[in-house]
Amino acid sequence: MCLALPAQIIAIDTETNMATASVNQVKVEVSLALVDDVVLGDYVLVHVGFALQKIDDQEALATLALFAEAGLTATA
């Protein structure tokens, strides 16, 4: 029920506040009613047809770097 998928915004209709998003090349209609300042190319988490939150790429990269760091300290 609480699962949400990362999707990239590929078109925005400002009149209806709806967007077209790509989930692994599959196009889905997504409401932007719950998020502000979404622009083309942004990644959002999509849940029951709504964008819940933007995905912060810097934070994602930082988390991935921490995974790698965990391994380094483990093997050191």
Partner: peptide
């Protein structure tokens, strides 16, 4: 309508 806080805002909309 069911769900935790994830699913509630779409119902509010």
């Amino acid at each position: 309508a069911i769900g935790f806080e994830t699913t509630t805002p779409p119902t509010a909309v």
